Simulated scan of single mutants.
Amino acid sequence: MAIQVMLISPALNAALREARFDGDAPLDAAGARHARAVASAVPAADRYLRGPSERCAGTADALGLRAGPEPAVRGWDMGRWSGRRLAAVSAAEPEAVSAWLTDPAATPHGGESLLELCARTGRWLETLESTEGDEGHRVLGVVEPAVVRAVVVVALALPVEAYWRLDVAPLTLTGLGGRAGRWNLRCGQPLSPAPGD
């Protein structure tokens, strides 16, 4: 059964602009305005969902999507680092940050390891095949960039370390088409306003 999975990364917010480990900060006015401006470029889907964060909820609303929260695609749990600036954590805990960046099983923050994030998103991909009918279908989700990166790593069977080599810009569309074990990737398509918008 063919599946099309389309993932939109949320709009900018203050946490992303300040290089913070997102502590579930909402969209700011500029992020919401940008999302509304590109709403007409969002592709149609058979099923809509979003990560449970305020940023994903705000982006989905600004895009005009009726997307319910899906806990399986929640953002990366950064434990006690949530809401803190990366620069401050790096200065205070250089060894911990180094371990986090080099060991996929490390959890110096007390949250979720990179391996756990990838395993969780992989299980979610598998559920898409087991819960839908025999015809091809399209699923569109607004999910945190960490989730987009993890889904790509799992779907393409990349080494988990490849996660750190993937960049996901705000309000971009990453698409996977196929089925478990045989996914094709279309990545980083910016959502652009329709001409005349």
Score class of each variant (00 low, 15 high):
M6N: 14
M6W: 15
I8F: 07
I8V: 13
S9W: 06
S9V: 02
S9E: 03
P10E: 03
P10Q: 07
P10K: 06
A11M: 05
A11G: 10
L12K: 01
N13W: 01
A14R: 12
A14W: 09
A15Q: 02
A15G: 03
A15F: 04
L16W: 05
L16E: 01
R17L: 09
R17A: 03
R17I: 00
A19E: 10
A19K: 03
A19F: 02
R20S: 14
R20T: 04
R20M: 07
R20D: 13
F21Q: 00
D22N: 05
D22P: 00
D22Y: 11
D22H: 01
G23D: 00
G23S: 04
G23L: 02
G23C: 01
G23Q: 01
D24C: 02
A25K: 01
A25Y: 00
A25C: 01
P26I: 02
L27K: 03
L27N: 07
D28A: 05
D28M: 01
A29Y: 15
A29M: 12
A29E: 14
A29I: 08
A30T: 08
A30C: 01
A30M: 10
A30W: 13
A30I: 03
G31L: 08
G31H: 11
G31F: 03
G31Y: 03
G31P: 00
G31Q: 04
A32C: 10
A32H: 04
R33P: 02
R33T: 10
R33D: 02
H34W: 15
H34A: 07
A35T: 12
A35V: 09
A35K: 12
A35Q: 11
A35E: 06
R36E: 15
A37L: 07
A37Y: 08
A37E: 15
V38R: 05
A39K: 09
A39T: 04
S40M: 06
S40Y: 03
S40C: 06
A41P: 13
V42R: 08
V42T: 02
V42N: 03
P43V: 11
P43H: 14
P43I: 10
A44R: 11
A45L: 03
D46I: 11
D46S: 15
R47Y: 10
R47N: 05
R47I: 15
R47A: 08
Y48Q: 06
Y48W: 09
L49Q: 04
L49Y: 02
R50F: 13
R50M: 05
G51R: 06
P52R: 12
S53M: 08
E54T: 03
E54A: 06
E54H: 09
C56H: 09
A57G: 06
A57S: 07
A57E: 03
G58A: 10
G58C: 09
G58V: 14
T59E: 11
T59L: 13
T59R: 05
T59K: 02
A60H: 13
D61Q: 10
D61M: 12
D61A: 14
A62G: 11
A62P: 10
L63E: 10
L63A: 12
L63Y: 11
G64T: 05
L65E: 05
L65A: 15
R66W: 15
